[in-house]
Nucleic acid binder design. Structure first.
Length: 420
RNA sequence: GGGGAGGUGGCUGAGCGGUCGAAAGCGCCCGCCUGCUAAGCGGGUAGGGGGUGUUGAGCUCCCUCGAGGGUUCGAAUCCCUCCCUUCCCGCCA
C-alpha cells in the first residue's frame, strides 16, 4: 500500500495513477478519515496522558480523592480511543484498495494494444507444411488429454501423459538449474496454501479474491502463484541489509479461478485452473529496484533463448499494469500453430507497495532505522505455455516433435517425441 | 484428535498488579586504553503513531511484551476466547 503521508501530500498524483491504471482510489474519503482520525487520536492521547500522570501520583500518594477523576478519565480514554480505532480501521481498509503509482517510464495507455514492444529475439520459424497447434500435436501424440481431464476435474484442466509429462518436468528442472547455478537464485519449495494475511501482503486481496480458490472451512487459499508464499517468506522481519539482495526461485503449481475470462482461451493448454510455474522473486534495496527489474527480466529471457524460442518483450502500459505494480515487462513466446504470441512471463517491480503490506523491512547498517525493502517477481517461466511454444516451434511434418537440445539431458537423452 | 510446556527488544532470557518499554547477557554503534589483533573500561542501542518543527536534527505526547476481549483508578503480570510454536500419545504418506 501507499504510505498515508504520501497520499496526504500528493493526492493528485495518487488519483492520476489510479485513473490511468483504470482503477479507482478513494482519496477524498481517505483524506477525510485521516483528518478525523488524527483529531480523535489527539483527544484520546490527551486524556491518556492525564490518566498516566494521575496514576503515577496515586501509586505514590494513595490519595483517595484522585479516584473520581481517574474513573472519569478511564471512561473518556475508552470512548475517544474507541472512536479513533474505528476511524483507523476504516482508514486501513481504504488504504488497502488504493492502487500503486507507477514509474515515469511506463507508457500511458488503456489496453494491451498500448503496450510497447521493447525488443525481439530470434525470428518466426518457417514450415513447409501448415504448422499445427500444440493441442492438435499433443492429442495426436497422446501426451495431452483435455477430455478426460474435464471429466475428472472440469473444464480448464489437463492431463499431461508420457513424454508430455516428462517434458514439463524437464523444463522445470532445466529452469531451476539455470537460475540456481548461473543466476544466483536460492531454490525454495514453498507452501501451496497460504493464509489471508499473506494474500493481503502481495495484494492479491482484498480486491481480487474472486480470482483465487479458497479452502472451505479454513483460513487458507490455493496460491495463484509462488510469488505469494515466497514474497511473504520474510514477512514481519527486519532483515540485515548485508543479506540483500535476496534471490529466490520456486517451482510450484498455480491455481486460478479465471473468473473474468469466461469464453477466453478455452482451447488448449493455455489458460487453466492449475498450471505450473518457475517463479523468480527478488528482495532488494530501494535504490536498486529498477536495475533489478532489468536483471530479472533478462534471467527469464535467458530461458527462452536457450530453448531457441522466438520471443518479444513488451513494457506494459499504465492500463495493463496490475493494481500493485510499479512497472512490468511481459515476455511473449511465438507459437507458430496458434499463429500468435503467448505470454509466458510477467516481470514486475512493486517498490515498497508489497513490503508495507507484508511489513518486510531491512536495516541498511547497524544502528540505522529500518526501511521497507522493494520486491520484484517474474515467471521464469510459466511451464504450460512454454510447452505450447516448444511443441509448436519444434514440430515436424510427420507429427513428431524435436526435443530442444538443452532439455535432452533432462529427458533421458530423448531427441524426438512421438517417434515410433 | 487427546494431554503437557511456552509465545517478552536484532538474539538469548528475567519479570508474575503501580517505582516496567521492561533486569542481565549476547550482538551492534561511539569513545578510551593496549605498538597491531584479541581482551579490558565508559557510554549508547526496540518498533510504530500523533502534535510541533526541521527536512532526512530536535522537542513532546501516545501505543505496542502472540492476537482480541474482560477485571481494575492502574495489566507484560489476573480472567476468557483465539492463533502459533514445541514435547508426549494417537492417527497417517
Amino acid at each position: 500500500m501507499l504510505p498515508l503521508d504520501f497520499i496526504r501530500r500528493h493526492p493528485d498524483e495518487v488519483r492520476r495513477a489510479a485513473r490511468l491504471k483504470g482503477e479507482t482510489a478513494p482519496v477524498d474519503e481517505i483524506l477525510d478519515l485521516d483528518r478525523r482520525w488524527r483529531e480523535a487520536t489527539t483527544r484520546a492521547e490527551r486524556s491518556r496522558a492525564e490518566q498516566n500522570a494521575l496514576s503515577k501520583e496515586f501509586a505514590r500518594t494513595r490519595e483517595q480523592a484522585l479516584i473520581p477523576r481517574m474513573r472519569e478519565l478511564a471512561e473518556s480514554v475508552k470512548r475517544s480511543s474507541a472512536e479513533a480505532d474505528e476511524l483507523r480501521r476504516r482508514l486501513d481498509e481504504l488504504l488497502l484498495v488504493v492502487p500503486n503509482v507507477f514509474h515515469e517510464s511506463v507508457p500511458v495507455g488503456e489496453t494491451a494494444d498500448d503496450n510497447v514492444v521493447v525488443r525481439e529475439w530470434g525470428t518466426r520459424p518457417s514450415f513447409d507444411f501448415t504448422p499445427r497447434t500444440h493441442y492438435e500435436i499433443g492429442e495426436a501424440l497422446d501426451i495431452m488429454d483435455f477430455e478426460r481431464a474435464s471429466r475428472v476435474a472440469g473444464s480448464r484442466f489437463a492431463f499431461l501423459k508420457g513424454q508430455g509429462a516428462r517434458l514439463e518436468r524437464a523444463l522445470a528442472q532445466f529452469m531451476l538449474d539455470l537460475h540456481t547455478r548461473e543466476h544466483g537464485y536460492v531454490e525454495v519449495l514453498a507452501p501451496f496454501l497460504v493464509n489471508t494475511a499473506s494474500m493481503l501482503g502481495t495484494a492479491n486481496l482484498p480486491k481480487f479474491g474472486e480470482d483465487a480458490f479458497r479452502v472451505e472451512g479454513h483460513d487458507l487459499w490455493l496460491i495463484p502463484t509462488a510469488e505469494v508464499p515466497v514474497t511473504n517468506l520474510h514477512r514481519e522481519e527486519i532483515l540485515d541489509g548485508a543479506r540483500l539482495p535476496l534471490n529466490y526461485v520456486a517451482y510450484s503449481p498455480c491455481f486460478r479461478s479465471e473468473a473474468g475470462a469466461a469464453g477466453k482461451d478455452t482451447r488448449g493448454y493455455v489458460r487453466l485452473h492449475q498450471f505450473s510455474k518457475v517463479e523468480l522473486v527478488k528482495v532488494v534495496e530501494p535504490e536498486r529496484s529498477l536495475a533489478a527489474l532489468e536483471e530479472l527480466t533478462g534471467h527469464a529471457e535467458e530461458v527462452l533463448r536457450r530453448l531457441g524460442l522466438h520471443y518479444r518483450v513488451l513494457v506494459m502500459c499504465s492500463g495493463d499494469l496490475g493494481f500493485a505494480q510499479y512497472k512490468k515487462y511481459d515476455l511473449e513466446a511465438w507459437c507458430p500453430g496458434l499463429g500468435r504470441y503467448l505470454e509466458v512471463s510477467s516481470c514486475s517491480v512493486f517498490n515498497d507497495f508489497q513490503a508495507r503490506r507484508a511489513n518486510l523491512r531491512y536495516r541498511p547498517a547497524p544502528g540505522e532505522p529500518p526501511r521497507y525493502v522493494h520486491t520484484l517477481n517474474g515467471s521464469g517461466l510459466a511451464l504450460a505455455r512454454t510447452i505450447d511454444a516448444v511443441l509448436e516451434t519444434y514440430q515436424r511434418a510427420d507429427g513428431t516433435v524435436v526435443v530442444p537440445e538443452v532439455l535432452r539431458p533432462y529427458m533421458g537423452g530423448c531427441e524426438l517425441i512421438g517417434a515410433a
